[in-house]
Design a binder for these strands. Sequence first.
RNA 1: GGCCUCGUAGUACAAUGGAUAGUAUAAGAGUUUCCGAAGCUCCAGAUCCAGGUUCGAUUCCUGGCGAGGCCA
Length: 633
Amino acid sequence: MQIADHIRNLSAQALQQLFGIEIPAGQLTINETKPEFAGDYTLVLFSFVKQVRQSPDAIGKAIGDWMLANASDTVTAFETVKGFLNFTISPSYWTGFLQNATSENYGYAAPNGQKVMVEYSSPNTNKPLHLGHLRNNFLGWSVAELYKASGYDVMKTCVVNDRGVHICKSMLAWEKFGNGSTPASVSMKGDHFVGDYYVKFENELRLQSAPIIQDLVHGKPVVDHLGAEVAEKAALLAAKLKGEDLPAEKQDEIKAELNEIARNATPIMGEVRDMLRKWELGDVETKALWRMMNGWVYEGFDITYKRIGSNFDKIYYESNTYLLGKQYVEEGLEKGVFFRKEDGSVWIDLTADGLDEKLVLRKDGTSVYITQDIGLAKHKYADFPMEQSVYVIGDEQNYHMKVLQLICRKLGMPFAEGIHHLSYGMVDLPTGRMKSREGTVVDADDLCDEMEKVAADKTAELGKVEGFTSEELTVLYHTLGMGALKFYLLRVDPKKRMVFNPEESIDFHGFTGPFVQYTYARIQSVLRKGSFVAEGAAHTFSTDLLPLEKEQIRLLEQFPAMVQQACADMSPSIIANYAFLVAKTFNSFYAEHSIAKAESEEKRMLRLAISNLTGVVIKNALKLLGIDVPDRM
RNA sequence: GGCCUCGUAGUACAAUGGAUAGUAUAAGAGUUUCCGAAGCUCCAGAUCCAGGUUCGAUUCCUGGCGAGGCCA
């Protein structure tokens, strides 16, 4: 058990025995003692002062004395300062901890028999991966690692959005403009190749829709083939636009709507819809084209996934699962969870839950996203009956995910309560949001190239890698480049929107992956020279700990608790912050106290043991973030 | 229009309702005859505004201002 929890339990016992007050240990506040006071951990007394009806000082003194009398092996001194009871932990606890924590697996919990599925990445097969996908991938990977380290049986899954209008756009553009070229014939990565045709489609669409939108703005009825309803709406919007005194924002909104109508009115969009219809009817040629182009994309994705260290235990393809949800519409109607409107469409009323009515089946009988997701969720549960199911999806889907969980619950799905949406914020650039139209989207492959190049340049500058083979150098640059990138994206609370500053991201100083990696490499150098053996050796350490020695041990002792917390919060940033603190504190310790030339052999062994465990903690912590450590750099 | 999220040093990020709000960067000053200077040490600098709850509020509640998102 962690010392902080132990203190918490002891405090609860003391309160019970001294004052007859029952407070669950979990409700007591134990903090690290502020550096300016004597002590290691602090019990905050205010919360139960009223119940005890004594002064904080008197309570503190009573609990402190109780500790000295009943737990002298743990607490050796105490001091009460204004309602804060500061405990000094016995040095023998710290050295005892150091002697026992010799496993390479320090920090990992034993299996707990529970299953959790983590769904992440979920790409579209019409574009290559970009910076936003990287945050998703790194988060998903790391959360899966956190669950594993906490004892769960984890299945990593990916849902590929491999069908739909957007895929047909790339396909159509390739048919029109591709002249039979292939990724191989133009030496391109398949995902980029297909992505380019998606862009080509958008360009053509813009050309075709430009004159139409002009007509629409001027109220000309040019959208006959979309039906009277749309034409009417367009006319209404055009009239509104002509009406005087609309604020600029409102005007833009209306123009955007007209633009959307115009895009749909183009001949090329008509062709896309035809193609989608053919695909859905199983047209042989269309399916063949679809299979070929998706194949190119997967080849490209594989390279990128391998490079960023992502993989999946099971991949679901939307083309196989998009029809699964329909059967639950019938079931929902029978159970009275859903209701049918006059036009035949099916809805669920969520107003009692603070939401609104939500469509689950269109009047033409086709399903919507939420329906597919219900079917997929059930399908996943059949494959892997998990207690928890984590969806790593951007926060723009918060509403959607809330609805999904609610519906699953109302349908009585056994996994409904285990659904967790790991909702992460968008990645912005210093100039604002990434926009594909403005070409500001940061490509994942380009970014990885850049990170590795910078790693190579900086390494060359410092000149510490004599004797490395070129293969070893390649591995090192990859380790450092990915370390920098992953750390940069994971160090921020996932829930929050974050800014990706290209210049900052390639900085290898301060709160960065390479800083932590450097500390690890340095430790390995010290251990090599000190010929330290951790396991199997019976060390006895001096209990006369210097402040920096104790501080480092105290930090290392917190690692398992950090893993638990990061897992519970689904927040790798807790691990990133902790790993940095461990490295930083070690560097201060290292600068202050010589290890090789320690005052005594006992001290030398103590410091080597601290160094060794620091190395283990850094290695394991970074592993939870998907980051490797180099022995030299 | 309805709903949701976020406002912390110049910048980017921390802080289960707890002590004098931490860390990194950029700016200034030091630091290598000695275990790796991608390091270490010192120096400055911030809770959007107004109320409320509390012994105590960056945190919880209400209103305002600002940024972003979702829904038809």
